[in-house]
């Protein structure tokens, strides 16, 4: 049997493939259904946060920041409650990261405010002396791409049944409304204006009022929602 395999490249290839595929199959597939179940209270991202999440991805923030708090006392002391499977149910893609050049951000919304973030993104060393994080000033002028964020939300709603426009906790109210692009956009602008005002930066407020959401505002909305 073995001598035959050595001389028949085709069956040899099939053999290699089966061995490597089978291992992956057993390792990954069975846990799929269970781990995608959201924890109670987990909600899909609203439009502005989803747009902010896209900014987070575009700027590869996950190259230096994790979003995964491990169950050790030293980690929960520093970052808050350890992370649970179901909290990530609406994360496509996941953003756990693999390196903490900067601190974990999974619950950053609990202990940082909008104006702290704005100052920090403008000049990190102004709020964290000694920080090696660079400033992200271009986020203060780039306009948020709400349309792509809406396209993503609508895609996950259609394809993966992510519960937008649904009553999740049974209180008779829709938890995360999406609706049409116009409706979603209007809500996003209301949220954006609130955050822009919280940052106490006039340029951001003016820009939102002029009909453009700066990327940093969306990013702050996303980070404020990380709890």
């Amino acid at each position: 049997m073995f001598g035959w395999l050595e001389r028949n490249p085709f069956f040899f290839a099939v053999g290699v493939f089966l061995v490597i595929a089978f291992a992956g199959l057993i390792e990954i597939v069975p846990d799929f259904a269970q781990q995608s179940r959201p924890v109670a209270g987990a909600k899909p991202y609203d439009l502005l946060r989803l747009a902010g999440r896209q900014v987070y991805i575009k700027e590869s923030c996950n190259a230096c920041h994790s979003q995964l708090i491990r169950p050790f006392k030293i980690e929960t002391d520093r970052y808050g409650m350890y992370s649970l499977n179901g909290e990530y149910a609406y994360d496509r893609p996941f953003l756990w990261g693999s390196k903490r050049t900067g601190p974990d951000l999974h619950r950053v919304g609990n202990y940082r405010t909008s104006d702290w973030h704005a100052n920090h993104m403008w000049d990190p060393t102004s709020v964290v002396p000694g920080s090696i994080m660079p400033a992200y000033k271009h986020l203060f002028t780039n306009e948020t791409d709400l349309e792509t964020a809406y396209a993503e939300a609508l895609t996950v709603k259609k394809v993966f049944n992510v519960p937008y426009d649904k009553d999740l906790d049974g209180d008779g109210k829709i938890d995360v409304p999406l609706g049409t692009f116009e409706e979603a956009k209007q809500r996003a602008f209301q949220d954006a204006l609130k955050i822009a005002e919280e940052t106490k930066r006039k340029d951001l407020v003016d820009m939102v009022k002029a009909g453009k959401i700066p990327e940093v505002v969306a990013l702050i909305a996303y980070m404020n929602g990380l709890k």
Binding site: D31, Y88, D145, T148
Partner: peptide
């Protein structure tokens, strides 16, 4: 996402897997 909704950036896409599953496939 563009192929599903016809709007937004044509180059953008969203992962088939979510959260922990995505992480497992990614590190596999």
């Amino acid at each position: 996402t563009y192929l599903v909704t016809g709007m937004g950036d044509p180059l953008h896409s969203v992962s088939m897997y979510a959260g922990t599953n995505d992480a497992m496939v990614q590190w596999w």
